[in-house]
Simulated assay, not measured.
Amino acid sequence: MKSESPQGMLLGDVEVIRIVEWQGAFAPARALVPESGADVWKANEEWLAPDHWEPESDQAVMALQTWVLRSGGRTVLVDTGVGNGRERPGSPQFHHRQGDFLGLLARAGIQPEDVDIVVNTHLHADHVGWNTIGVEGEWVPAFPNAQYLIPAADDFHFGSDNAYAKGRQEDDRLVYEDSVAPVHRAGQSVVWEGAHRIDARLTLEPAPGHTPGSCVLRLASGTDRAVFVGDLLHSPVQVLDPSCNSCFCLDARGAAASRRRILERAAAERELVVPAHFGGSGAVEVRREGEGFALTPSRW
């Protein structure tokens, strides 16, 4: 899967930079979104391919990416990818991965010490991996001056006290131990619940379902609006039918309810919708269409 150069735009007074580690075919389309029918993909092939779907292989196309926001003189990272050298035996795509994430940040003019805030929209492996780096056999925060904003419900759910309710999956235990617990030990974590205002332009809000603590980041600056939705959306077909969950959603009913609520507001307030993993331009504009929604790729 290919790496890409940083891409940027300005939303009000906030600079948004897209850091793409890789983008390509990820999984069979209906394995990723099991409730979607083959007819939906085929009927929308003209715009789903090639950025979101490979019709020949029937593979969903996704990106592993981080969004960098420069707001009010501070640098904010939204999610941190998979990380390097991680033990992820249950996720072959992420197991012992070696990427150039810090190099991509550097080429965008961002050094680790420049980062002020790290937002983890939830605590799955591909959203927290570059929270930490290995130094002399220990995992330590990758961004020494940053506050790491961690949803309380996910910290409890995936942490050792809850033990994943009925026993954590092995990969979840490993993720927490190498990418979350070291941040707590370093005193750099802020565990939040309810809502969390980063500054006058950026606010975190709960959107549970994909995980118990899944959240969205709202951007409001001038007349521009955007909502960074994490894994509420893995594919644009979920915009067409918000009842369709990904295979990774832990609470199907809750995820669908959060997805519809976020899309309804995005359509009403003309918010740019920015998922964690969309290929192509990486973001979409949505509008109401009957009982559902339609979308247009953003003008990135």
Rank of each mutant, 00 (worst) to 15 (best):
K2A: 09
S3Y: 02
L10P: 07
L10A: 11
L11G: 13
G12D: 10
D13S: 15
G24Q: 07
A29Y: 10
A31N: 10
G37I: 02
D39F: 04
V40K: 04
A43W: 06
P50F: 01
H52Y: 11
D58C: 11
Q59A: 07
L64P: 00
W67N: 06
R70Y: 09
R70H: 11
S71K: 01
V76S: 04
D79Q: 05
V82H: 02
G83D: 00
Q93S: 08
H96G: 05
R97D: 00
Q98Y: 13
G103C: 10
G103S: 14
L104G: 00
L105N: 07
L105K: 07
A106L: 12
I110C: 07
Q111T: 09
E113V: 12
A125Q: 14
G129R: 05
W130E: 15
E136C: 14
G137I: 05
N145S: 12
N145V: 07
Q147F: 08
Q147N: 13
P151R: 04
D155E: 13
D161N: 11
N162V: 14
A165P: 13
L174M: 04
Y176K: 01
Y176M: 06
A181S: 15
P182F: 06
R185T: 13
R185H: 14
Q188G: 01
S189K: 01
V191S: 03
H196F: 14
R197N: 12
R197A: 15
R197L: 08
P206Y: 12
L232K: 01
S235V: 02
P236H: 01
V237I: 11
Q238I: 08
S243R: 03
N245Y: 00
S246D: 01
C247E: 08
L250D: 05
A255M: 04
S258Q: 06
S258L: 03
S258N: 03
R259F: 11
A266V: 08
E271S: 02
G280T: 02
G282V: 04
A283T: 04
V284A: 02
E285C: 05
R287G: 06
R287H: 12
E289W: 06
G292H: 03
S298I: 01
